[in-house]
């Protein structure tokens, strides 16, 4: 099933009367179960694309269909609802709340859903188990290493059973070893059927995906299937 489709999507920023075209003429389609890497140099507009696809921002022009519905006329609340129920985000800078415990951070999206305490705690514990941090469940996230933080962020994205997970440079703030671990988890999620869009400027990260979208100057330069997807095992990248 087609999850995401855009038609001539464009985003223009206006700053002091000077218009900057961040995206133009974006036509793409992402189906359920795909693992797409959006790759391009910094300033190419890849993050802007992710923000629009993730319903954090609205396009200036063009059409965006999420689950075959045009979201152009959606209110802020309806977009918030999509973010809460259908989308999970993993950010470069983790964006965890430092004084909350691992469990409290993971459970947060479900708080905005109004899920009862017991149910959401059970769900959160499941995903924390999945990312292998059950022994850190009551730690404040400020006590965790970078890699562990990003795994908590992944758990937080997963806890709502989203249709799609957007990861914006998820390994950007990590050393290569913990970056690999995080990437392995993301790949693993895709194996389990999750749809994933990962934004990166590093080609070795993009190699872990199944499809690569090259963005240059706000346009899709190339859209290719990754010929030899690199499978990351516990020992690192397999050749």
């Amino acid at each position: 099933m087609e999850l995401i489709r855009t038609e001539n999507l464009a985003k223009v920023y206006e700053d002091d009367g000077i218009k900057t075209e961040a995206l133009r003429n974006i036509n793409l389609s992402i189906k359920e179960g795909e693992f797409v890497a959006v790759i391009g140099p910094s300033g190419s507009g890849k993050s802007t694309l992710m923000q629009i696809l993730g319903c954090l921002d609205r396009p200036t022009s063009g059409k965006y269909f999420f689950e075959e519905k045009e979201i152009h006329s959606y209110t802020d609340d309806e977009l918030a609802h999509i973010r809460n129920y259908k989308v999970g985000f993993v950010f470069q800078s983790f964006n965890l709340l430092p004084r909350l415990s691992v469990l409290e951070n993971v459970v947060m999206p479900l708080i905005y859903r109004g899920t009862p305490d017991k149910e959401r705690e059970k769900k959160a514990k499941e995903v924390i188990e999945l990312i292998g941090l059950s022994d850190r469940i009551d730690y404040q996230t400020s006590q965790l290493s970078g890699g562990q933080k990003q795994r908590v962020a992944i758990a937080r994205a997963l806890v709502t059973d989203p249709k799609i997970i957007f990861a914006d440079e998820p390994t950007g703030n990590l050393d290569s070893k913990s970056g690999e671990v995080v990437l392995r988890f993301i790949q693993e999620l895709n194996h389990q059927g999750h749809t994933i869009v990962i934004v990166t400027h590093e080609s070795y990260v993009a190699q872990a995906a199944k499809r690569m979208l090259h963005i240059v100057d706000g346009e899709i330069d190339k859209d290719e299937t990754v010929a030899n997807q690199k499978i990351i095992s516990k020992e690192g990248f397999s050749k």
Binding site: L56, D76, D77, A80, R83, N84, F91, L97, M108, R156
Partner: peptide
């Protein structure tokens, strides 16, 4: 501000 952004990204509405 960042916390507000994060909360919104995980589904907090303006009203929340």
């Amino acid at each position: 501000t960042r916390e507000i952004g994060l909360r919104k990204s995980i589904g907090a509405t303006n009203k929340n």
